[in-house]
Structure formats: C-alpha cells, structure tokens
C-alpha cells in the first residue's frame, strides 16, 4: 500500500536542497506534525549530503507508505561510493573522516522511527529511513 516514489539525483549542493524540499512537501502532504516534518527534513538533509560528499553522488527516493494503521514516509539514499568499512564507528557521535561534526549518521538515526543501512567497503551505501505519523 504505497504510491510510487519520486526519485531525485544527488549530484550537487543544489540537489541536496531539492531533496529537502521534496521531503518537506511530502511530509506536509501526509500530515506529519510540524516537529516530525522538521526532524525528517533534517535527517534527509544530512543523509543526502553524505550521499554527495562521501558516496560521490547517487540518488534519493521519497515515497509514502501505509502499514494499514498509520501513514508515513520512507526515503532511500543510495550511492555506489566506497561504502563504510566500520559502521559502528561511523555511527558514533562526533566521528568524521571529512572534517564535519560527525553528527549526520548518528543524528539522523535519532530523528527517525526506522533506520536501516546496508553498506560494505567497496560496495556503496544504501540507507532507508521511515517516519510514521503519530
């Protein structure tokens, strides 16, 4: 039970802005609360930037989901970059290999209801997040 997703390329700073805006639009459409919209858009911004900066670019796909009881939004971020060799380390607050704050992955995970990551050194990274309406 879900509508077809919308896929955006993530290849530039501008694309990261587009991802934020699409997520915002869909979040409003499924009537996430204002705080949950803000959390989801923030998480999406972090992950889209990682796709661009560390993954060397990729795509993001935004879809609405419905589990029969609740509606929600699912977003997939995928790249074919270097992957993440040590996931536990990458998910540690403050860990960064790029001079960032190291809060993107760990923070995004806190901001959503479901956070799933598939990655392996040399195999790219795919992260799926879901936020449900309360």
């Amino acid at each position: 039970m879900s509508e077809p997703g919308q896929r955006l390329e993530v290849a530039s700073d501008q694309d990261v802005v587009r991802v934020r805006q699409l997520v915002r639009t869909v979040a409003v459409a499924v009537k996430l609360s204002l705080v949950d919209q803000t959390k989801l858009v923030t998480a999406a911004s972090e992950l889209a930037r990682n796709t661009l900066v560390y993954g060397g670019g990729g795509w993001a796909e935004v879809e609405t989901v419905d589990n029969g009881r609740r509606k929600g939004i699912r977003i997939v971020f995928a790249d074919e970059g270097p992957g993440i060799a040590d996931l536990d380390l990458a998910l540690t607050d403050g860990y960064t290999t790029g001079g960032g704050l190291g809060l993107g992955l760990s923070g995004a995970r806190r901001l959503v209801d479901e956070f799933d990551i598939v990655t392996e050194a040399g195999q790219g990274t795919t992260i799926t997040i879901t936020k449900w309406c309360r």
Partner: peptide
C-alpha cells in the same frame, strides 16, 4: 530560531 528547529537540533546532538 523556531521551536521545532530547536527541538530537532538538540536531538541531532547539536
């Protein structure tokens, strides 16, 4: 700063 932004920032860890 909007309240929702403040709430989100703190949860982000910032």
């Amino acid at each position: 700063m909007r309240p929702a932004v403040a709430i989100t920032l703190v949860e982000l860890g910032l």
